[in-house]
């Protein structure tokens, strides 16, 4: 029988540390996109709560816990990320799609993480403007990205094929910031 070996998007590229900031990859077990049917947001939220214990997050927010979280990723679109795939019961009220392999999940952590990200991302990253659990779909170094503020920094999702460029751009900004002594 054929046994295919899995390879993560940033395999062999990370982690990278500079100026007290660390860029690393995390590989969740599952990512399922949940797109509620028309006018079915409340029903999806209820179904998500029943199946996974969390409501749908608001626009630009996350819900759930670290091991399994729902992340708003765009208009009418959420990702369930973590230890479980979206329960089949959700399919009655939402379109579900496997996104597990479509994305690279990077974590950027450290005191100067926001200063690093400010080099390549046009978001207002001030602590008061972009709080823990806030998430944004935006641009990182000219690539479409989902950026979420975590406890110690940021989680950055880029599409899988862009991983090498994303790592190069973020580590470049990290090196520059480290040289500027802001780390």
């Amino acid at each position: 029988m054929v046994d295919l070996i899995a390879k993560s998007p940033a395999a062999g590229l990370l982690p990278f540390v500079a100026g007290g900031v660390t860029l690393a990859e995390i590989v969740p077990d599952f990512i399922t996109s949940i797109m509620p049917h028309r006018d079915a947001r409340a029903a999806v939220s209820a179904a998500l709560k029943a199946a996974h214990g969390m409501a749908l997050p608001g626009d630009g927010r996350t819900s759930g816990r670290a091991a399994l979280r729902a992340v708003w990723t765009g208009r009418g679109q959420y990702f369930l990320i973590g230890e479980a795939a979206a329960d089949a019961s959700l399919a009655a009220v939402a379109s579900l799609s496997d996104q597990r392999d479509g994305w690279a999940l990077l974590t950027l952590e450290g005191d100067a993480a926001a200063d690093v990200l400010a080099r390549i991302c046009p978001l207002d990253l001030r602590a008061g403007s972009f709080r823990r659990g806030d998430t944004a779909r935006t641009e990182v170094a000219h690539m479409m990205a989902v950026v979420t503020r975590s406890t110690r920094g940021f989680e950055i999702m880029v599409m899988r094929s862009f991983t090498r460029t994303a790592v190069a751009q973020i580590t470049g900004a990290m090196r520059s910031l480290a040289a500027q002594g802001a780390g």
């Binding site: 797109m35 679109q77 799609s97 392999d101 599409m159």
Partner: peptide, 8 residues
């Protein structure tokens, strides 16, 4: 509803 699965 639709979503890109190019990379998936």
């Amino acid at each position: 509803q639709f979503i890109s699965v190019t990379e998936q």
